[in-house]
């Protein structure tokens, strides 16, 4: 498996606080990488850096071996990396379909973007069908449940034709039935050929889905491996449960 996305010594400092501290990571083609860690470990900050929402303080980000650190968010989306938001951010006064159409019009390589309303319509409906929101296409995001809004975030991100999707806690906060559906949805996304990095607190979901898991604590990578290895790692246990005195 070739390395699609790679980070070398990625750091983000806010003043004296090292939110992300020299983290090395990679994501292979077709892989699901779980990203876990206690609250404040720097997971979302790492996402924001990778997605270009904030520039890295140091380090390199490579997509297909090409340098892309310091690019604007929209340029990174055009290159094929798209994120969702932990706290969902739908465009409230656009209909659900229009939300997805924005992604279809503006995401991905120029040649592949939707050029006409009709085309964006079709792509939007196809994606809403995929995430299970098709019947609600003409409604507004405020009429959706939290699960629905999280699905909308995924659909909107998928509309940008990403090669790498960054999912920020899409399962957290859902009831068991919804969680199960979301887990299946994420598998479906991978089956469409999209590689995924997911931040998740719901251990059952992240351990079940991930090919590989990476653990952050205080901005540093403390463990990496498959689900069993990571769960058995004493440092990880300490980070979550605290050290014995």
């Amino acid at each position: 498996m070739s390395r699609l996305l790679e980070g070398e010594k990625v750091s983000k400092h806010f003043g004296g606080l090292k939110a992300v501290d020299a983290v090395d990571f990679y994501l292979s083609e077709g892989e699901i990488l779980g990203l876990i860690g206690p609250n404040g470990a720097g997971k979302t900050t790492l996402f924001s850096v990778v997605a270009g929402s904030i520039p890295p303080s140091a380090g390199l980000l490579l997509l297909d071996g090409k340098q892309m650190s310091g690019w604007n968010a929209h340029r990174i989306v055009h290159a094929g990396v798209c994120r969702t938001h932990q706290i969902v951010r739908p465009f409230a006064r656009l209909s659900i379909l229009e939300n997805v159409m924005v992604g279809a019009f503006y995401g991905g390589k120029r040649a592949k973007r939707a050029k006409t309303m009709r085309r964006a319509h079709e792509q939007g409906i196809e994606l809403l069908d995929f995430v299970g929101l098709r019947e609600r296409a003409a409604r507004f995001p405020s009429e959706l449940t939290l699960a629905g809004r999280k699905k909308l975030e995924v659909a909107r991100a998928l509309a940008t034709r990403p090669r790498v999707l960054l999912l920020d806690e899409v399962v957290a906060g859902l009831n068991p039935v919804e969680s199960q559906k979301m887990v299946e949805l994420i598998r479906g996304v991978r089956d469409r050929g999209v590689s995924i990095i997911m931040i998740e607190h719901v251990m059952k979901a992240v351990m079940g889905l991930s090919d590989r898991v990476m653990v952050l604590d205080y901005g540093k990578k403390i463990a990496e491996g498959n689900a069993e290895q990571v769960a058995a790692n004493p440092e990880v246990v300490a980070a979550y449960l605290g050290q014995e005195a």
């Binding site: 968010a73 229009e98 924005v102 019009f105 939707a114 940008t160």
Partner: peptide, 25 residues
């Protein structure tokens, strides 16, 4: 046109718009 949708997205949430590829600036 499609530009109108992009502008509305910027108006609603400029960061989220950039995160789906709208070059807000």
């Amino acid at each position: 046109s499609r530009i109108g949708l992009g502008l509305l997205a910027i108006k609603e949430d400029v960061d989220a718009a950039q995160d789906v590829g709208v070059s807000a600036n």
